[in-house]
Design a protein around this nucleic acid. Structure first.
Lengths: 262, 262
DNA sequence: TGAATAAATTGGTAAGACCAGTTGACCACC
DNA sequence: GGTGGTCAACTGGTCTTACCAATTTATTCA
């Protein structure tokens, strides 16, 4: 792969990651109090401003509740956090993938994608349609060259265009979150979902259904298209779940990462 | 209604609300630079810590991008923000409801609810099932007493239990966000969605489908149930959209709020 | 015993200083 | 003409210290 952008994180980013990790992994259970700000300064060796910036973010994420004089309490993130937390739940601290989160994402896109296609067929502007057709053409080229990574990018852009054309801001925002988790797994999924992203015919069928304003057809083709990748990923997830179950009984300390090459 | 909890917001909350409002309403377009932190201190009359806490939250919400030395740039929230932003988009600054956002929420729950019911039928534990049945019983009582607010609460709890039973963390998190927007509109929607929340039979049918592990039935009943409220809300949204279109041509300064009583 | 009160604790706000990365203008060099 | 170096101005990042305000806990006293 090419050069990677250098990631430099600030102190408050580090504090946020550490605390949110502790909470999500249950080491700070819901209802407990976090240490006082001044105490966290000592524990983490940073100034109070950095601590406060991180705590404000934790509160916004729905992980803690801050009250002046009363301390900072940990909330039940399953009940209070927003969808944005998903990308944090996808990876465990050791870098391995949480099978349950991965399965959840696939199920969610399976539920949303057909309706996104349907609404796009209902509301797409000529400009939206033009983007879709343009992307299908580019997919044809990439498919002929067997350029899987390029197909993956184009397929993602295709869905980007569909979501935009759906005229549904909730879908747009949810899709942003899903995309974030997707690109994190990009290299791994390019192989697993090869069947789906190589299926240019289905992409084209959706685009043409959108062109005809054929909501039903767009919906059904989209559902079938999703089904392909979903099935493969769920198979992989099942394997991962078996692996982590075995691991519980065993040493449980090695990271079963990097299944990218297959 | 009863007494309202006193909302005391901190300075950084105020800064966050003001800046996110400006960005969402387009007064700071994507790509532009926000004023420097020290400049915002002067403009808003608060210390730099409060400004920084707010900016960190804006960055986390996907509204801005901060880089040391390079200033703070506004992002395109449609492309970068997460689902959490939805509750902010639901209300305009004057307190009126954004029809597009309201329609989006209804469409999203219409897409998710059937799959939530399906997965719950697939995976619910005996404890989940017991909660569902208990809630249906309570709904029966409330329905007999024509206690609409109570029915609304119970229906919401019913869906809470369904989501928990679905074993899908993405649905749980997305549902948290949707619930947040729902409770904000609670009093208004209790009348609009009366048909749906009064339909105890459908709730019971879902619970029993879950009991049988009948995924298909759970899914279809849930879809039909959603349809009831969705139709009524979309009718209301259409009225609101007409109203705001008229307003554009006219004075455009009065807030068409409070349609609660009907 | 229980209500009023004081003390300790915790988050909220403030001001000032200095560090570190970015940008753009300018200039020497090839 | 283009390349790279230098420098100054600007911007966010970090740190320290102090004090204010709300809550909690311990204490006191009727």
């Amino acid at each position: 792969m090419g050069l990677q952008r250098i990631a430099k994180k600030t102190l408050s980013d580090g504090v946020y990651e550490q605390l949110s990790g502790e909470i999500v992994e249950g080491r700070y259970g819901a209802g407990l109090s976090l240490p006082a700000e001044r105490q966290l300064c000592d524990m983490l060796g940073v100034n109070r401003g950095a601590i406060r910036e991180a705590l404000k973010r934790l509160a916004q994420a729905g992980l803690v509740s801050i009250s002046q004089g009363g301390g900072t309490k940990v909330l039940d993130f399953r009940r209070n956090a927003g969808l944005d937390l998903l990308s944090q739940l996808m990876f465990r601290r050791d870098g391995s993938i949480d099978p349950g989160a991965a399965r959840s994402v696939m199920e969610m896109r399976g539920a949303l994608a057909p309706d996104i296609a349907r609404l796009c067929a209902k509301r797409a502007t000529p400009a939206d349609l033009a983007s879709l057709r343009e992307l299908v053409e580019q997919m044809d080229v990439a498919a002929a060259a067997e350029d899987l990574p390029e197909l993956q990018t184009l397929s993602l852009q295709f869905w980007d265009a569909l979501v935009r054309g759906s005229g549904n801001i909730a879908y747009e925002l949810a899709f942003n979150t899903l995309r974030e988790t997707y690109v994190q797994l990009r290299d791994l999924l390019v192989q697993v979902m090869a069947d789906e992203i190589r299926d240019v015919a289905s992409h084209r069928a959706i685009a043409e259904a959108v062109a005809r304003g054929d909501e039903l057809s767009a919906k059904h083709v989209a559902a079938a298209l999703m089904e392909q990748g979903t099935r493969r990923v769920l198979e992989l997830v099942a394997v991962l779940e078996d692996a982590s179950r075995e691991e519980e009984g065993a040493s449980a300390n090695d990271a079963p990462d990097d299944d990218a090459e297959a």
